[in-house]
Write a protein that binds this DNA or RNA. Structure first.
Lengths: 252, 252
DNA sequence: TCTTGCGCTTGACGCGACGTCAACCTCTAC
DNA sequence: GTAGAGGTTGACGTCGCGTCAAGCGCAAGA
């Protein structure tokens, strides 16, 4: 006994368009066609459809389903592989949700925090726009909380370390050092290490800053005069950028 | 000072193709074009790009980003709405993962369980194929574990309840009752309630079986002679189906 | 001056799983 | 004869780009 396309569709809870699609991609040809192209499905076809729908409901792509069913691929193994993908996707989503949540609180409280916050020396707020807009207000807010938690002494020590670094950069640039030389790369390593010490820096959870973050920052040093000034102007910033980009390509 | 498309692309860590795409959909027009259509971006455009990328990295669709940026839509509110979507998606994924996990253990252990399992009376294994193939081996395995956990007395009581129901169905069908009448619908309600008592029934977590599950089952009662026999043949099964489908449409 | 090559342009197809017309056919019932 | 139900085969749209393909403008080398 065979069923029409509508019968099968209702039985399985899918649309007839779906069945035509499955026919078209070769996933489920009707067991018989006749009389103007009408599709007829026998019990075997219905059972195949049921297996298809089971796997589809588990989120498996149709092409994978086809190979599993046609090539008698080990169903359990296919499911395990599929499970891995689902878990990775779930983890990605969880990270994204956490990021949005942090961004949201940062955006909501951003106004107040920024108003309170007028630092001297390395101006932590002057670069707010760039930091928040490229790397998310969460990076800024996290770094900001950390900065305020440092205390007076901590802030001074941190700034001193930065000043040392900057002086070293400027000196090396003036001496015409090759950015890819050992000295340039050692400076870059110190710089990256310093960056990674700031919580909220993208990638710092993995122990070192994200490559693109470093590269983007390095480009910004050149592109933005306020940053470039920290390194003695455009030439110094260019040197810093070249050294950092080379380092990032090698080591990150 | 303006930048070329490649400069901006490197600065932001995206491809030039992406920038062209953003121009094409009106999300980020270059601030100036000239000389053979070359795109030039000023600082304002770069800042806009940075905001776009922040929101994009949070998983927001480009059209939504466009409205947020253009219509000065409240950014916090947009983020909250987006967060809801992400959470719903996460929950869906979690359920799917759990389902795949259950299916996997069921598939791996299925052979053994099925071999042990030869019940009398209402044959719980005879319909295994239909149950597992349409609703997943997990539904079968869950129901199976529940069935074995019932104990001898529980199983007898459950079967008695089913027998009562079946007799009532057959009687009503013989008397020519209208499936949509109060009597037919009351029977359908009892049937659905009985279904929902079986753990593993799709939708029973929400307190009542899924509409499509009931409809699919009802169709199967007619389509499969082994099921139809429970209701006195095709005519009885048709009556049961019509009553169940009407009930499902109304109440599920 | 011609060629080569780089960087850019526009235009178009492809992906995944169908939803949604549109135009046409076949059979049955009135 | 005609209307209606239920089928058929295209073909386009979705989303965010990747990836050719063909062509243009400009600068350096032969």
């Amino acid at each position: 006994m065979t069923r029409s396309i509508q019968d099968v569709a209702r039985l399985a809870g899918v649309s007839s368009r779906t069945l035509r699609h499955y026919d078209q991609i070769g996933l489920l040809p009707p067991s018989r066609t006749g009389n103007g192209g009408l599709r007829h499905y026998d019990d075997g076809a219905v059972r195949r459809l049921q297996r298809i729908l089971l796997l589809r409901d588990l989120g498996m792509p149709l092409t994978d389903i086809g190979t599993v069913l046609d090539e008698q691929t080990d169903e359990a193994r296919a499911l395990r592989g599929h499970l891995d993908q689902l878990r990775a996707e779930r983890d990605r989503l969880a990270r994204q949700i956490a990021s949005v949540e942090r961004t949201l609180t940062a955006v909501e409280q951003g106004g107040r925090i920024m108003a309170e916050q007028m630092l001297d020396g390395f101006d932590h707020t002057q670069h707010k726009d760039e930091v928040t807009q490229r790397w998310g207000a969460d990076a800024y807010a996290t770094g900001d909380a950390w900065w305020r938690g440092l205390g007076e002494d901590g802030r001074k020590a941190w700034q001193a370390r930065l000043q040392e670094l900057n002086d070293a950069w400027i000196g090396a640039a003036r001496r015409g050092v090759d950015p890819t030389s050992d000295e340039g790369q050692a400076l870059a390593a110190r710089h990256v290490e310093w960056l990674g010490a700031v919580p909220g820096t993208p990638g710092s959870e993995q122990g070192r800053p994200a490559k693109e973050y470093v590269v983007g920052l390095a480009e910004m040093y050149v592109a933005d005069d306020r940053f470039a000034a920290n390194y003695g102007g455009t030439d110094g910033a260019t040197f810093v950028r070249d050294a950092l980009v080379a380092y990032a390509e090698r080591a990150l």
